[in-house]
Write a protein that binds this DNA or RNA. Sequence first.
DNA 1: ATTCACAGTGAGGAAATTATGAACATTGCC
DNA 2: GGCAATGTTCATAATTTCCTCACTGTGAAT
Lengths: 226, 226
Amino acid sequence: MYKILVVDDEENIREVIREYAEFEGHEVDEACDGMEAVEKAKETDYDIIIMDIMMPKLDGYLACKEIRKFKQTPVLMLSARGEEYDKLFGFELGIDDYVVKPFSPKEVMARVNAIVKRNAASAAPAPASSDVEKFEGLEINFVSRDVFIDGEKANLTPKEYDLLFYLVRNKNIALTRNKLLEEVWGYDFFGDDRTIDTHIKMLRNNLGPYRKFIVTLRGLGYKFEA
Amino acid sequence: MYKILVVDDEENIREVIREYAEFEGHEVDEACDGMEAVEKAKETDYDIIIMDIMMPKLDGYLACKEIRKFKQTPVLMLSARGEEYDKLFGFELGIDDYVVKPFSPKEVMARVNAIVKRNAASAAPAPASSDVEKFEGLEINFVSRDVFIDGEKANLTPKEYDLLFYLVRNKNIALTRNKLLEEVWGYDFFGDDRTIDTHIKMLRNNLGPYRKFIVTLRGLGYKFEA
DNA sequence: ATTCACAGTGAGGAAATTATGAACATTGCC
DNA sequence: GGCAATGTTCATAATTTCCTCACTGTGAAT
C-alpha cells in the first residue's frame, strides 16, 4: 500500500485516478493546485506524487521544484503533448516519469508501481539522453532549454523551442507534417497543417546562419539535417 | 492500417466513424449492439473497439466486461454527456479512453491512433525493416529520405523518391505499369501510362552510373535488379 | 530489311506545394 | 480592462514538380 498524492485541477481526473488507486488498495490524498500540493507534501510523506502540469496558481514544474527543496518524493507528471513537452525532461527537477494524455488509469498505476519499486531499490533517477547538442555554432541545451547561436543566446518562443527540440532529437529523420503535429502540437490539435510552415519560418529566421540545418522535404515535411 | 470494430445502435454514428476511418486507410467492422460486439470480438482480432455505452440488449460496460474475459483488445468508449461519467472509467474493465458526444470523427480517430500506438509500443520493441540499402555506390536511406551516389547526395523530386523507394523495396520483382501506378501514384490516379516512363527517365538521369539497376521489361513494366 | 508496337526523350503549360506577410485569436500579466 | 507576446489562420506570391503529348529510338518478328 502506498500513500499517493494526486494533484490536478480537474476533479474528474483526480477522481478517476483515486478510484483506480483505491481499487488497488492504496491511500489517496488530493490537491487541486500547485500551492496546495506543496503544503500537503510538506506535511506528509507520500510514496509518490502524481501531478498535472497545467494548473492554476502554481504549475506542475514549479510545484515540483518547490517540493524538491525539502523532499525527494518521486513525481509522476501528467501532460498533454504540446505542453512544452520538452520541459518534461527537466531532470534537474527530479521528475521520475511522465504520462501523456490521454492516459488510462491502468497505465498511470502501472507506472506508479514501477517508480515506487525502483525508488525503493535504489535512489537513482531516470537516465538522461544527452543534455546538449552542438552543430557548428548552434548549441542546444535541452536541460536548461537554451539555444545559443555563435555564443549568443537566441530568444525563441515556447513553440519554437518545442519544434526545434523535436527536430533535433530526431535529426536526420524525415518527419511528415502529421508526425510533427502529433508529436509537437499534440494528438488533440485539430488545426491547420500550414501552421507548421509558419513556425518553421520563424524558427529559421531565429536560427540565422544555421537555418540551413532545417531542410524542406517537398511533398513530405521537414528534417533537421546535421 | 488497423482493424477497427465500431459498435453503436445508431447507424449514423457508425457510418460517420466508418467513413473517416476508411478514409485514413483502416478496415472497419460494425456491430449494432453489445451481443453482436462480443461475438465479433471473439472471432476477430481487432486493434481497437470503438463502442457506445448506451445500447440495447447489452450495454457498453457489460459488453466490455464480457470481451475482457477472453481478449485484451483496447476499447474506446463513446458516451453522451452526463452518462455517469465516473462509471466510464470502470477501470477494472480496462477502458482505455472515452469521448463525449457530440464528437468529431477526427477527434475519435486521433484518440484511436493514440491508443493503438501506445498499445503497440508496450508490446513490440522495434519494427526495423532495414533502414538503408546499398548497391555498389548507390545508397538509399529510407529514414532520412536520402539517396547517395558515390557519396554525393542526389537531389530527387518527391515522385522520384517515391518511385525509387518502391522499386527498391520490391527489388528483383517485375512490376507492371499498372502496379506502379496503383502503388506509387495511388488508386485515384487516372492519368496516362506514359507518365511513368517520364519519371523513370528522370530517375535514371539522376542515378548516373547506377541507372543500370532499373531495367525495362518490354511489354510489361520495370524492375529494380540488384 | 522492314515493320510496328512499345519505350525513351524534351518541352511547355498545368497543378501542387511551400514561403511569407499580415490579420486575427488567445493567453498571460499588469 | 488593456497590453504585449505568442500562436493560428489565411490569402498571395514564389517555386517546384507533374503530366501530357508529339516525336524519336529500338528491338523482335516476319
